[in-house]
Amino acid sequence: MSGSRLANAARTFARRIRDNPDEVLNLATRVAKSSALATLHVVNAVCVAHLFANHVGWINMVDGPSMLPTMSVSGEWVLENKMIKPQNVQRGDLVTYLSPLDPSRIVCKRVVGLPGDIICVDPTGELAPSTEHVIIPRNHVWLSGDNAAMSRDSRVYGPVSMALIKGKLVARVWPLSRITVFRNNFDYID
């Protein structure tokens, strides 16, 4: 029953193609054009999302042991603010920056020193003698992981240029049980 209906429809369609090929050609062109335009619109939307993620903010996953206990080794999502001026970061902020060792990695550490500060490179004396101090140059910051034992940071590669800083972490949004707004809890000891 429905099979003969289908066959009928096919026959009608074939007749239509045979009788007015121009109309079919026009239809095909129209379909091709509109689907191409639709693809371009999708590409454009992806570009908008990319620009938003790169210049306004986005939710990203963080991974790795160097920020324990602030952030666990894996499975956490954080909201990142990209609308920052690297010149305005404060001591204690969690920032993301391009790794000075590998340009394809974006890593997250805590700001410890600002330009002009005198920093003891490594108080434990493991990576540098514990008496070695450096003055942080202009437009650089000293970054360090919260888990000093398992972190590659300014102790290894020295002060990091502010031009590498890309954003600041605002809050953890996943897992839901550990939602936190990262406040600057840096303490000054007089």
Binding site: A53, W58, N60, M61, V62, D63, G64, P65, S66, M67, M71, V78, E80, T96, S99, L101, D102, R105, I106, V107, C108, K109, G145, M150, S151, R152
Partner: peptide, 11 residues
């Protein structure tokens, strides 16, 4: 070799 001692932001 890539070092795993970083807290990496996966984009």
């Amino acid at each position: 070799p890539p070092d795993e001692l970083d807290t990496e932001v996966v984009v």
